[in-house]
Amino acid sequence: MMEVTITTNKMNHLVDPNLHIWGWEVPVYLFLGGITAGILIVVSFMLLKDNEEKSHVVANRLALLAPVLLSLGMVALFIDLEHRLYVWRFYTTFRFTSPMSWGSWILLIVYPISFLLILTTFRKGFSKASLWIDACIQSKPRIWRYLRVYSWLLDFSEKHRRLIAKTAIPFGILLGIYTGILLSSFGARPFWNSPIMGPIFLVSGVSTAAALVVLFSKDREEIEFFTRVDIWLIAGEISLLILFITGMLSSSEQHLKAIQLILGGEMTTYFWIFFFGIGLLLPAFLEFMELKGRKIPGTIAASLVLFGGILLRFVIVEAGQVSTWIGY
């Protein structure tokens, strides 16, 4: 049975012949959101384990990157908007059924939490900056008096560090999972429409945060610990990806067609060779060899994990847009 379908007169920009509404901005945002979630989780975990001495970078300094990376992600998201002057409309309502509305409010809550998380160990992690701010407050009370709020917040954060860390973990998980739910809740795009998408994005986010620690840390013990953690996270990510693919294979015709995009279809090379091979298996292998005592710079595996993390988002965002119910 041969079937030919001809469409005329639709030709809408970004919709026809293939949906292409989201370019680089959304995958970049999903990557940065995921890594921020990962940072919140690993930092809080180390704080709760009282590992400041053992894990200096993570416990004392890494949190500083959370609001920075999240802000960069939000800039990407803002660039993606088409009606930018109306961006404030996200915050005049809360739509219970819209994951994007949940996301915009979660982002708003994550900001103060990440700032408080920085302050919990600000004096230890950034002692020079902290001393400079203290000196400013004391020397010029008139101009700097507003910074007294900072001192109060610093004391508050140091006193309630466990509470802050305990709050940051669920919000980190929420942020990480949300980046996947954002896509998986689109019933109209079969490739995204899998409940495993949330956990995949969360685990990948924590894995990229662990890679970031390896990149920034100079302490051997800390690098070794996070290398070991990352191997487990990659193993978890591979298991979830297998679940994702088998779930799609046992689903409806549309899902079957959609998953063919990475099982022989146009995204196969990007997914299996570049993401799965170079961005997941290779760094896991290198990390394993490092732990076995081979002299391989940890930065190679860490960079590959970050590369894999960003490529995963690019491949999934693109594949989801190509997958469709109608096929014309």
């Binding site: 809408n12 993606d80 088409e82 930018r84 409309r89 996200f90 819209s98 019933g187």
Partner: peptide, 21 residues
């Protein structure tokens, strides 16, 4: 249109591809 941010979520959500910017 005065509430629309142009986030394009509705375009992705429509299985009929009926929406555009």
């Amino acid at each position: 249109k005065s509430k629309c941010t142009g986030c394009k979520a509705c375009i992705a959500a429509c299985p009929y591809d009926a929406r555009f910017i």
